[in-house]
Design a protein around this nucleic acid. Structure first.
Lengths: 239, 239
DNA sequence: CAGTGGTCTAGACCACTGA
DNA sequence: CAGTGGTCTAGACCACTGA
C-alpha cells in the first residue's frame, strides 16, 4: 500500500466528485489550505489538482479557486446522444410518445434487472421516438428509482425520458452495445416496416459513481440512423 | 506566444511521435540529458515526460529510460478490434480468404478515394473473415500505398490485412461508423444468408498523424457479432 | 551497484482576475 | 490590490531494475 501523497489527494477528490458529495460548481479548498491539511509542499497538492483538471473533473481559475466541473466527454469518445438535440441539428422536430408506464419490481430470475433495481423498484417506460412525426425508433427503458427517485413524478408528454435523464442526472460511466437485428412483428408495426427488416439496436447501461441509473434498448430504422465514433490519442482533444 | 517550457518539451515529443520520426520502442533522452539540453530543472522535464506517459504516448521504466509506446486506447474508448484476437479469446479460429487484390488509382469523382490515395495509388483488398471456417464477415478495404508502401508486397494468405496493419502501422486517429444494413445479393451468397437479412456494417477510416491510412467496410452476420463500447471519465481507466 | 525515474521540499516570481 | 493558480528552481532521498 504505497500510494504517493499526490495520488491519495487526487483519488480522494475523484471519489467525492463521482459519489456526488461534491457537486458541479462546488469549490475545492485552495492549495494553501490543502498544504496545511496534509502538511506537504505546494507542488504536491498542485500535482493532484492539476491531474483532476486534465481529467476534466475540475476547473481551476486564478484568484477564484478550483471548482468541480460538469463531466465532459469529448468528441473523440463515444457519447450518449440526445436524440432531441441530434434531430434539431438536422432541422427535424423530435417527439416522443409514451406507450407504457409502470412501476414494478425486477422480474424474478433476471439478474440484470435485480442489479439495476438495487433493492428498490424499477420504473418501466416504453415509447416511440419520431422525427417530424415519422417513427424513428422504438424504446424500452428501465430506470432505478433508488438512484433517481424524482423520475417517478416525471412528465414525459413533452420530453423523452432520455432527455430528462441527461438534463437531471449526471452519469459517470456508460456501456453501449450495438448490433443489427431484424424487426419483431411488434416493432415492425410501430415503425411501419416489414417484420425482419434490418434495424440498428443500441443497448445502453449507465452508472453514476458505481450505482446503476438506467438500461435502455432502442431499435432504430436502419436507413435513418447510424452511430459514429471518432477517437484518437488522449490529449489531442485538449489544447 | 507564451508557452510554458514543460508544454513546449511535451508538444515537441508528441509531434515527433505522431509524425513517426520517433517510432514505437525508440528511446527518449533521459531527464538529465533534457535538463542540460533545455537548461532547466529536473521537475520541468519530468512534468513534460509524465504528461506524455499519462497520455499513453510514452512508457517510462526505471533504470531503463523513457520509450515511445505503441498507442493504446483503453477499454473505455471504442477500439479498433483485431478479429483474430477477438475470436481467439472466445476459443475460435480466425481465417481470412482474399477474393480480390489490385493496385489502382482512385475512381474519378469519388472524393473520399482521392483523399485516401493522397496523390498515389490505392491497394484494394476484398476478402472474407471466417470463424472456425464459417463465414463471419465480408470485408472491402482500401489502403493508401503512400502511407504504407510495404503493404504492396504483403502476403495475406495466413494473416488478414487488418491484423497486418495493426501490427505494422500505428494509427493515431480513427472514425467508426456503425449501421444496420440488409445483405446485398453478393454478400448474402458469401455469408450463406438470405438477401436482405440484417447485418451489422462497420465503416472505419484511420489516420496516422493526419495522413490517411485505410478505409474498410465490414459487413457482419447480425447474430454473430456486436460492438461494445464502455466509457467513463478519463482517468478511471488507469491505475 | 549504478543509472534511471518517482516523489517531495521550501522556497521564488509571475499572471491573472475578482472584490 | 490581494488572493489564487502557473510555473520554475536546485536540491534531496528513495525504489526499482538492468547491466
Amino acid at each position: 500500500m504505497k500510494q504517493p501523497l499526490h495520488e491519495k489527494i487526487r483519488a480522494d477528490f475523484e471519489a467525492r466528485i463521482l459519489a456526488g458529495m461534491l457537486a458541479p460548481g462546488d469549490r475545492l479548498p485552495t492549495e494553501q489550505e490543502l498544504m496545511q491539511e496534509h502538511g506537504c509542499s505546494r507542488m504536491t497538492v498542485n500535482k493532484a489538482l492539476s491531474a483532476l483538471q486534465s481529467a476534466g473533473l475540475v476547473e481551476r481559475r486564478k484568484k477564484a479557486g478550483s471548482f468541480v466541473a460538469r463531466p465532459r466527454f469529448h468528441s473523440m469518445v463515444l457519447d450518449i446522444p440526445d436524440l432531441a438535440v441530434q434531430l434539431g441539428e438536422r432541422g427535424k422536430r423530435h417527439s416522443y410518445r409514451l406507450t407504457r408506464r409502470q412501476v414494478r419490481g425486477p422480474i424474478a430470475g433476471r439478474d440484470e434487472e435485480a442489479a439495476l433495481a438495487n433493492g428498490a423498484q424499477l420504473l418501466e417506460l416504453d415509447g416511440i421516438h419520431c422525427a417530424d412525426d415519422r417513427p424513428l425508433a422504438v424504446e424500452h427503458r428501465l430506470i432505478a428509482t433508488r438512484a433517481v427517485p424524482a423520475i417517478v413524478d416525471g412528465d414525459f408528454d413533452s420530453i423523452s425520458p432520455g432527455t430528462w435523464l441527461l438534463q437531471h442526472v449526471p452519469w459517470t460511466e456508460a456501456e453501449n452495445r450495438i448490433s443489427a437485428v431484424g424487426a419483431t412483428r411488434r416493432e415492425a408495426a410501430l415503425l411501419g416496416i416489414a417484420p425482419g427488416a434490418p434495424c440498428l439496436c443500441v443497448e445502453r447501461h449507465t452508472w453514476r459513481g458505481g450505482d446503476p441509473i438506467t438500461y435502455v434498448r432502442q431499435v432504430f430504422l436502419a436507413d435513418a440512423y447510424d452511430m459514429v465514433a471518432r477517437f484518437g490519442p488522449s490529449g489531442s482533444g485538449g489544447n
